[in-house]
Write a protein that binds this DNA or RNA. Structure first.
Length: 868
DNA sequence: ACCTCCCGCCATGCT
DNA sequence: AGCATGGCGGGAGGT
């Protein structure tokens, strides 16, 4: 049933189907008032859009779109109120315009590039679905239909869907078919991405790049060299590239068969791009930096110009979609060098650890569990670029994996199996009551969101802290809406379901319980890749919003005020993953390389790449860097086990046990979180798996303890357990740092990655020690890590901020302090856009924290450009 | 002249 | 073989 394959789902042509679902949702929504435009307007099934679509949008319509795009608020209002009206009107307007303006010209004009922009298209696309769809309803999306309706080639739809998929706003059901999840999972996804980003030390990378640039400007060639190395090395060494797609189990794995396909670069890129925002303090990321980081992963040397350009193109594509989602907005960063296009995060702020998860995280102490998805994921990982090239696509391996997966699915699909199957099913099947609940929750959620996403988060956080993991759901219906509503307890079980990862997969899935969000994520670690750490220097450019053009001014206004932030180092928290020393496959590049080679395939492309001589930096520098021990980062898939509510129900039931256990576990851990306990989990990971969270050094607990811990998580873990993956250990990081001189030998970094994931785990003792140093000398950029660790507790934000010396004060429990600090900085009200002043504070804080360490900060001026 | 990024060729891989 | 996906980069619209 679950459709092991898409085929099973036969769909009518969408319209009928689509609509029906939509309508339902609309009904539900109606109650709320928020309805989706699509639905709302028409009771009738026919889609309004098409009409409009049929013709190109008139300028007016375009303007509207643009406006809406510009101001999310407006858009949201419209949507809520009834996009239908707008839509209906739009067409009319168009007509009028058309007539007024001679048709020919108009039409010609219409086609203007802007009108065809991906961003606009994405808006149209999004307008069709509710932000918070009723899971119970069928939210299938037929790509063909959409393409038709929107009058665009399917290729464009793929661009949009891929990005949405990266955020788990949609998931592939089958060929040509996607399921719309809306923003239900968004917060969770972002939290997970943030955690991963922290783990990957994107913040550090950003800093390094900035620093490098900075130095270059100064003509510190020598230094530059180093930096260059860093950059290059990082990318190359970093496992980033490895990072695979972060998945929500429920969502994605269905499509596994379909997904199996390659790398999903756009999706992965999208996730990475988002991570950069989540991890960087200013939350402003320039395309240049983003491109460098993304490329870096692949090959240092590859950095040729052509590649860079291509990357930039893709980033624009992604940025357009993200902008449509109101997650980012375009700004310009002015540096000494000049003005650079950049994007500012305008989405919800995410608590340091994954939304909510972090607090829990500790608890999560990361149990490893295997899930079905795990397999798939594993398979993916193997094949993913990350792996060695050889593996990447070896057909035999692929087949093997697939066959295994298919078998597993079948098995899992069996009623008895707790495994969650396709979400779709669950959603469809979802019990009535849950649905209602869900709807209510959804409504609440939507309302809340409208107000501001932030508040919610905080709430969640608080709850989490309190240790009510599950309770949260009830408390904050909105939050939980999806899965959680259905049956929080149940949900977890799903996550629990352990699938054992195929031995093949290198990655080991780790399940992290997430308190707030409820669901736990499974993270598949891949062999970490070595990363070079360099002392964070950051340049901290100050961003000045040149002006917030945003007409709408919606949230962004903050921008307007000059925001000065130093992006740099701010977020130290990187969790260092257990770096494992594993030799592993570092060179991911293969894939990329292969591509390049293949590049020719395209008719045109000449491999110009090599030209980039200038781009590349002296390798010598690299050598220098090499000396430094590298840290490996695990790149893996993060899978939120609980994930979708829909999923949960069925599987959950089967697993009642787990659920029961889980909840208890969480709590148990939860309390520990604050303090200490998490360790056990960490240990486990440390020992057997290189889990993120674990900090190697700290491990206090014995594996056995771990076993005990897992309780909640279930045996599955144990099973999974066997397969040890190597993660980069934090130890490595420490080592590296020490090496670098960043950290005193005594001090150790906690492996724990970001707040979200399993940050906490670190044993307090160690940390305290490490922490202190940090405090003392912010000089070491690293301290931040501690923060992150702590963050888990505090939860507020993982951000580096730290300005708070407070953190340090408590060596033992450093955690809270940072969080607090962040809380200060962040304005509750506008999550996304803290008042300018707030930003300022941040900067200051950051600076203080890193203090001297960083190179003189540059100031960046950020100007939002909304042209339109 | 540079920034954006649309367009669609064609590789890739599933069915 | 055919179709669905989606990588990729030329080249053109915008500013």
């Amino acid at each position: 049933m679950e459709n092991q394959k898409e085929n099973l789902f036969s769909e009518p042509h969408k319209r009928g189907l689509m609509r029906s679902p939509l309508q339902e949702s609309s009904k539900a929504n109606v109650v709320l008032a928020e309805i989706q435009p699509d639905l709302g307007p028409l009771t009738t099934p026919t889609k309004p859009k098409e009409v409009s679509q049929g013709e190109p949008w008139t300028p007016t319509a375009n303007l509207k779109m643009l406006f809406s795009a510009v101001s999310p608020e407006i858009r949201s209002r419209d949507q809520k109120r009834g996009l239908s009206e707008n839509r209906s009107r739009l067409p009319e307007a168009r007509d009028c315009l058309h007539e007024h303006l001679s048709g020919d010209e108009f039409e010609k004009s219409q086609p203007s590039r802007k009108e065809k922009s991906l961003g606009l298209l994405c808006h149209k696309f999004l307008a069709r679905y509710p932000k918070y769809p009723n899971p119970a309803v069928n939210n299938d999306i037929c790509l063909d239909e959409v393409a038709e309706e929107l009058n665009v080639e399917r290729r464009r739809i793929y661009d949009i869907v891929n990005v949405l998929e990266s955020l788990h706003m949609v998931s592939r059901l089958a060929k040509n078919r996607y399921t719309w999840h809306g923003r239900h999972n968004l917060t969770r996804t972002l939290g997970t991405l943030k955690s991963v980003g922290e783990e990957n030390k994107y913040a550090e990378q950003i800093m390094m790049i900035k620093r490098k640039e900075y130095e270059q400007e100064f003509d510190f060639i020598k230094s530059c060299g180093i930096e260059d190395h860093v950059i290059k090395s990082n990318p190359g060494q970093n496992g980033h590239s490895d990072m695979c797609f972060v998945e929500l189990p429920g969502v994605e794995f269905r499509a596994a068969s379909v997904n199996s396909r390659k790398d999903k670069s756009l999706r992965v890129m999208s996730q990475k791009f988002v991570m950069l925002f989540l991890v960087s303090t200013p939350q402003i990321v320039s395309l240049e930096i983003a491109a460098k980081i993304l490329i870096g992963e692949d090959h240092v040397e590859d950095l040729d110009k052509s590649k860079f350009k291509t990357k930039i193109r893709r980033l624009y594509d992604i940025a357009n979609v993200l902008s449509s989602l109101d997650l980012i907005k375009k700004v310009h960063v002015t540096e000494e060098r000049g003005r650079k296009p950049a994007f500012k995060w305008t989405g919800p702020e995410i608590s340091p650890n994954n939304s909510g998860s972090s607090p829990v995280m500790p608890l999560a102490s990361s149990f490893l569990e295997v899930e079905q998805s795990a397999k798939e994921n594993c398979a993916k990982n193997l094949f993913s670029t990350r792996g060695k090239p050889s593996f990447t696509r070896h057909p035999s391996l692929i087949k093997l994996v697939k066959s295994i997966e298919s078998d597993r699915r079948k098995i899992s699909s069996a009623p008895s199996s707790p495994v969650k199957n396709s979400k779709a099913e669950s959603s469809q099947n979802s019990p009535p009551f849950p649905n209602k609940m869900a709807q209510l929750a959804a409504i609440c959620k939507m309302q809340l969101e409208e107000q501001s996403s932030e508040p919610r988060k905080k709430v969640k956080v608080k709850l989490a802290r309190s240790g009510h993991y599950k309770p949260l759901a009830p408390l904050d219906p909105a939050v939980n809406t999806e899965l959680e509503l259905l049956a929080p307890s149940l949900i977890q079980p799903l996550g629990v379901v352990p699938l054992i990862p195929s031995p093949l997969s290198s990655a080991v899935p780790v399940v992290l319980p997430q308190a707030p969000s409820g669901p736990s994520y499974a993270i598949y670690l891949q062999p970490a890749q070595a990363q070079m750490l360099t002392p964070p220097h950051g340049l901290s450019p100050t961003v000045c919003p040149t002006h917030s053009s945003n007409a709408t001014g919606s949230k962004d206004p903050t921008d307007a005020p000059t925001e000065t932030t130093t992006t740099d180092a701010t977020k130290p928290s990187a969790s260092c993953r257990p770096g494992n020393v594993q030799p592993a496959p570092e060179k991911q590049g293969c894939k990329n390389q292969s591509k390049e080679t293949t590049g020719e395939r395209g008719t045109k492309r000449t491999s110009t790449s090599e030209d980039s001589g200038p781009v590349k930096k002296p390798k010598e520098d690299l050598k220098a860097l090499e000396n430094v021990p590298a840290t490996l980062f695990p790149s893996g898939y993060l899978i939120p086990l609980t994930q979708c509510s829909s999923l949960g129900a069925e599987s959950v039931l089967s697993n009642t046990e787990n659920s029961g256990t889980l909840s208890p576990n969480h709590r148990i851990y939860g309390s520990p979180i604050a303090g200490v306990i998490p360790v056990a989990s960490s240990e486990l990971t440390a020992v057997n798996f290189p889990s993120f969270h674990v900090t190697p050094l700290k491990l206090m607990v014995s594996p056995t303890s771990v076993a005990a811990v897992p309780v909640g998580n279930s045996p599955a873990l144990n099973s999974s357990h066997p397969v040890p993956t190597q993660n980069p250990s934090s130890a490595i990081v420490n080592f590296t740092l020490q090496h670098l001189g960043l950290i005193s030998p005594s001090v150790q970094m906690s492996a724990s990655t970001g707040p979200g994931a399993g940050t906490v785990p670190v044993s307090p003792h160690v940390e305290s020690a490490s922490v202190i140093p940090d405090n003392l000398s912010s000089r070491q950029g690293r301290p931040t890590n501690h923060d992150s660790l702590f963050l888990g507790q505090s939860q507020l934000n993982g951000q580096s901020v730290a300005g708070t010396g407070a953190q340090q004060p408590v060596p033992v429990t450093p955690k809270g302090s940072q969080l607090v600090a962040e809380s200060f900085f962040r304005t509750p009200g506008g999550p996304t856009k803290p008042a300018s002043s707030s930003y300022m504070d941040f900067d200051g804080a950051n600076k203080t924290s890193f203090g001297t360490l960083f190179v003189p900060q540059r100031k960046l001026e950020v100007s939002t450009e909304d042209a339109h």
